[in-house]
Design a protein around this nucleic acid. Structure first.
Lengths: 102, 102
DNA sequence: GCAATAACTTACCAAAAAGTAATATAGTTA
DNA sequence: TAACTATATTACTTTTTGGTAAGTTATTGC
């Protein structure tokens, strides 16, 4: 963590990576099974998916629920903290849509 | 560039890096001389600063104005496209301020 | 009793991002 | 004529991030 003055730094430390905003964005519509979520994130590797959801969970942005069945079932959902990013995520998506055709 | 479905991808390709949001954020208040802007971004190296503003310029988010004097004077400012990120940047900063004390 | 299943985990390697330190520039001032 | 200035560039190295492929688990269904 940098000792910079503006809080934007803190935000970037939590969601300022390649995959985090995409994972959070796809969870806005509700909880998803691990495999389903992963398939929505085109291009992500097995390893990066697991690693990224682990970090999001540690930072309190998503929750992980394990169902004790075989084969395994795991669901991810946004926490309240995660949900509070909804505006930012939707604005970023909308901004991308606006400028995509330049 | 990934061939993902959601426009969020495009946004992340333009501003989804360590330093870009910080540089844009500090330009929200108006144009700044190169050296002044760089000093506001605590921790950034000489190289990364130049590299990052070059990319932001290429993507049309900031403008670079060179004054032909010695020693050199260069000013950076947001373009209209850059200014259109204002809400997103301020929301991210605000979000960071809200959760920083957890 | 063997394959199929979903969700990982690990070891290993490659690629990308970032840092360091030295150097260039060219007028102005001492 | 030498130092100073602000901005930038380059070569080199380190750090971080990401990818691949194989292995693990434990029950179900054939």
């Amino acid at each position: 963590m940098s000792k910079n003055n503006c809080p934007l730094h803190y935000t970037l430390n939590l969601i300022g990576t390649k995959w985090k905003p995409l994972i959070l964005f796809h969870l806005l519509e509700g909880p998803l099974r691990s495999g389903v979520l992963q398939k929505k994130i085109s291009g992500i590797s097995n390893k990066m998916f697991t690693q990224t959801v682990r970090e999001l969970e540690q930072d309190g942005l998503i929750a992980r629920e394990v169902f004790p069945v075989v084969p395994p079932k795991v669901e991810y959902s946004l926490t309240d903290k995660g949900k509070s990013l909804e505006n930012i995520l939707r604005n970023m998506d909308e901004w991308g849509a606006t400028f995509y055709k330049d």
